[in-house]
Design a protein around this nucleic acid. Structure first.
Lengths: 148, 148
DNA sequence: GTAGCTGCAAATTCTTTGCAGTTGT
DNA sequence: ACAACTGCAAAGAATTTGCAGCTAC
């Protein structure tokens, strides 16, 4: 017998366009910031009240495998997710309102700052502080990161 | 590549100097990189075989409260801990050997790069790549997180 | 019709906590 | 002596998985 073609490790889950996955897709499309699993569950249940948490986990995992979503990991917290395909960016976490904002652009060139022998392939950066909405003072809210 | 062991700020806030806390202290002093709870448990059990996981969690938590240890959060992974009191620094995670290294110094001034209205107070940075010990060719295995 | 998806509940993994016994001071 | 500490086991919290029924195609 000959060789067999082994299916690509590429994941094409979400074979079906079910109500629940469509609802979850809508939730992400309507969101203006990264969402937690609970955020997705709650928003999704407004569309489909019977939506279960396991389905949300499975759908999100499938969408991440398909590169439709990207996880946003804030150290010490449960993951958030946001639609993929955006340009390289980082996140800002407001210590007052606890919301996570996206920061466009990346001004860093890490390779040149690493010790000899280290090679940088990727990086994650989270900046913590105070956002324009929660000011202890400041208010000049020019356009900035996608908020909320 | 290596790390230096920076002298720890001495701290006597622990109510008692028990064998198990002393063992855990030794483990951290002997470590040349941030350690996970499991790392500490395993190393500690070489000194005190009966050492329990709950004790490790409690001791680490106490040492963090006392500012004797600092948590090192790598997105998507369980926390590591390292002796506190070092200068501001970041971490490098080798995608091959999975080890976490310390990178001294931080040349970035993030406040300058934030949109108007945002104020940076703190930041976390993790650089991913290949460390000097690991050969360039080896392919990294599937998501090696969840080790222990 | 049927493979894939869903909800539920049970299982996993990591961490915390209650408790009775132990130990440092 | 006695409060703090410890190990164990049970409890929590977040996520995954097994399974019988449902549903998109």
């Amino acid at each position: 017998m000959g060789f067999q073609i082994i299916p690509l490790p590429y994941n094409d889950e979400m074979d079906r366009n079910t109500r629940q996955r469509h609802a979850i897709e809508l939730v992400f499309k309507a969101a203006d910031r990264p969402l937690s699993v609970q955020d997705v569950l709650e928003a999704g249940q407004k569309i489909l009240p019977a939506l279960g948490i396991a389905t949300v986990y499975r759908a999100i995992k499938g969408m991440v495998d398909e590169k439709w979503l990207t996880p946003v990991q804030i150290p010490g917290e449960n993951p958030y997710y946001e639609p993929a395909g955006k340009t390289h960016h980082h996140h800002f976490r407001c210590r007052q309102c606890q919301k996570v904002f996206e920061l466009e652009g990346c001004v860093f060139d890490f390779d040149k700052h690493l010790p000899n022998g280290f090679h940088a392939e990727h990086h994650d950066l989270v900046i913590y502080g105070r956002c324009p909405i929660c000011p202890a003072s400041v208010k000049s809210t020019r356009r900035a990161a996608r908020q909320h």
